[in-house]
């Protein structure tokens, strides 16, 4: 199962990004192979339909679960339709490593 975590940087010690559409990086974590990848969000600076573009990217990556700080109304609606689980974390200065450790066990 593939989980996406929004991230500020492209390493495991970077903090997790509270925004979904405008997140700088997406951390792609594959739960079966334990493989971790960072993908830059190419749409972060475009104007308009950022949510929809990000959602498209998520579907392309085959995500089943997305962990972020918040989702826009558009993204929420679209992701609800394609049966992707959304997780909103409270801001507690967690790093990507902390979150991956949490979902591992």
């Amino acid at each position: 199962m593939i989980t996406i975590i929004t991230s500020i940087g492209n390493s495991l010690d970077s903090a997790f990004d509270l925004r979904f559409g405008r997140a700088r990086f997406f951390c792609v974590y594959n739960e079966s192979t334990k493989d971790i990848q960072f993908i830059e969000n190419l749409y972060k600076n475009t104007n308009g339909s950022i949510g929809a573009n990000a959602v498209e990217k998520m579907i392309e990556l085959g995500a089943k679960k997305i962990i972020s700080g918040d989702f826009g109304p558009r993204a929420k609606e679209l992701l609800g339709k394609v049966d992707i689980q959304l997780v909103i974390l409270p801001n507690e200065n967690k790093t990507i490593q902390d979150i991956i450790n949490m979902i591992k066990y």
Binding site: D83, Q85, L86, V87, I88, L89
Partner: peptide
């Protein structure tokens, strides 16, 4: 459907899509 849940132990909020069978917190299980 499109309902949100909150976990009492880690305070994460999340949805449970209809393809998912488990009824637990996705982070702390």
């Amino acid at each position: 459907e499109k309902h949100w849940f909150v976990c009492s132990s880690c305070h994460a909020r999340f949805t449970i899509p209809k393809t998912m069978q488990e009824h637990q917190c996705p982070l702390c299980k």
